[in-house]
Design a binder for these strands. Structure first.
Lengths: 330, 330
DNA sequence: TGCTTCGAATAAAGCACTTCAAGGACGGTA
DNA sequence: TACCGTCCTTGAAGTGCTTTATTCGAAGCA
């Protein structure tokens, strides 16, 4: 414990023979202090190894220097990628990032404090990949906690999303150009308005295939490789089997791949398969897919959030582009 | 901003007509307060929607209620899995988890404050997957910041590791039982003493194969699918090609898989392939692999850390078990 | 020389809780 | 009735920094 005793601003002040206010000013508003004094204070701080205690700083500043990121990390590994993009920037800005898994973030509501676990500790919040429930949104609003939604719709907050419709179109165009006309589409079974994202993607897809005189057959699956493997039956076990299957995201595509193998179908000759995201699974399965700019999305979200924290009240929507990544499954 | 005004303990006290000390006691040591008073205070708190401000709480308690997790999240996706295990538990305990990517965690050292960015804000630290540099370790020690190392060696701190040697043995036994005698092993090129982990895994592997009269050929690769795909040449492009290849982890195994396909080799008939970790890539590639208990490792680490925070000075090492997962590549 | 002005330094008031020593009330006992 | 001991409750002192209003001194001006 001996070494644990922190050096406080008082000791620095004493050593530099100034008041603590001056020490504080040296650290925060150097130009308000005469060069001579400043030098003396800095020297004293260095000699004592003074490190301002964040606890106290943020307490006195009424700000946390800390933002939260909530996402379904467990369910969708892709959110980690967004997080890393954000982390790099946050570290430079000396902002701490507290992560919440959407599953585990369920309100640990004590009888007294019916509130989200995050209240009051954060300067801002980034919610990824899941719709912000109205009740929660209202609370965030009330608490005046700046929030931005990533990869999700929100009527109240700024958003960072991808062009899902275009993503669907890109994929469809790729398949169309390879001659596919009868194609399957494996949709993820989802809840609430997150769906609209999935729908947009599907619409973009259908539009292009439809325009080419093709036909899209849609099946639905839960979010897991195993579920997709089973759900693919609806697409593959029919007389006029589609010559290509697009899945809502990579993990589902992997399920389709396995289902194809179960049936002795060759990929891509008997059936072409595409995913969406270009995550780790896509690389591993050598899957043709549509790449989302994950890292950039995290970064952008942080930028937008910081703008709001600094006072901007302008709701904004940032749409990021996607692009096709060709591999061996089409 | 109107709604942003927080309810403070003073207002609750006033409404319940008690002192703030009593309110504080109701929240922290309920049994020291008479039931009647307690009820009154709780009611008042509920009516006002009182939420204690963590800033102030932890400041007054001289504790942060917050731990840090540092890991190479960007480079190895598997660390996310460990993180989720930890997150669930942390949420229940109302502990915030601040994440640092090992890459971006480089010291943002100001001229005055030569210190790690994490000092003074955390109650404890979990360092995953990378050796703790001596200089850093010494600083953590000095600052008296409880630390535990996961999946890494450390002379100073408690550790949570897997039985690498056993993992290697398991894999080897599996291949041996399938008749493989001439096998390749793709090692990851690594730095410093993290290597010892890799070495232990390899030793366990070699021992079993050796005991069966077999022979292990070792090649080295950087950490990426692409690098592994190239490095596999050293194993596959030789006269007496191994009938099986084990890779240090899944991503490398995927590289081997691709390399095999490049050469028109069938898996597992011409060459069997195994990985290690059982991450997302393993599922996607339907790879036989050795599973690490990721979630559990995160949880265990948190438990150990909490013990240290609560005062235990006992250095400990927890070894977690691994197990074989058979899929289609062997 | 006397008065103003302006920069530099400071005192002191927060910030929103925890905690501990101390005070009060009340029932029980002699 | 007087004295004790217990259990609640409270006042007040931290916690370590920011910030605002104020003071001090010296330079500038007439």
């Amino acid at each position: 414990m001996a070494a644990g005793d922190r050096v406080t601003i008082y000791e620095v002040a004493e050593r530099a023979r100034v008041s603590i206010s001056t020490v504080s000013n040296v650290l925060n508003k150097p130009d308000r202090v005469s060069p001579a004094t400043r030098a003396r204070v800095l020297a004293a701080a260095d000699e004592l190894g003074f490190v301002p205690k964040m606890q106290a700083v943020s307490f006195a500043r009424r700000a946390a220097g800390r933002i939260g990121v909530m996402a379904p990390f467990t369910s969708y590994s892709s959110y980690l990628r967004r997080l890393s993009g954000l982390l790099a920037t946050a570290a430079q800005l000396e902002i701490d990032v507290v992560v919440f898994d959407h599953e585990s973030a369920a309100l640990a509501s004590s009888p007294v404090l019916a509130s989200m676990p995050i209240h009051g500790r954060l300067d801002g919040l980034i919610v990824m990949g899941l719709p912000i429930e109205d009740a929660i949104a209202e609370r965030l609003r009330e608490r005046n906690l700046p929030t931005v939604a990533v990869d999700a719709d929100s009527a109240l907050f700024s958003r960072v999303v991808i062009d899902d419709s275009n993503g669907g179109s890109l994929a469809a165009a790729h398949l169309r150009d390879r001659g596919h006309r009868r194609v399957g589409y494996l949709l993820e079974r989802q809840v609430s308005d997150y769906e609209s994202q999935a729908i947009r993607r599907l619409s973009g897809f259908e539009q292009v295939i439809g325009a080419a005189g093709g036909d899209v057959r849609v099946a639905t699956s839960d979010n897991s490789v195993g579920a997709a493997r089973q759900a693919a039956a609806a697409l593959l076990d029919v007389a006029d089997r589609p010559s290509a299957v697009m899945a809502h995201h990579d993990a589902l595509a992997v399920g389709v791949l396995l289902a194809a193998r179960d049936r002795g179908l060759r990929v891509p000759d008997d059936v072409a398969v595409m995913g969406f995201d270009d995550g780790e699974a896509a690389t591993a399965a050598d899957l043709t897919t549509v790449r989302q700019p994950f890292e950039e999305s995290g970064n952008t979200a942080l930028g937008v959030l910081l703008g709001h924290i600094d006072g901007s009240d302008l709701r904004s929507t940032t749409v990021l582009d996607v692009r096709l990544v060709e591999r061996s499954t089409t």
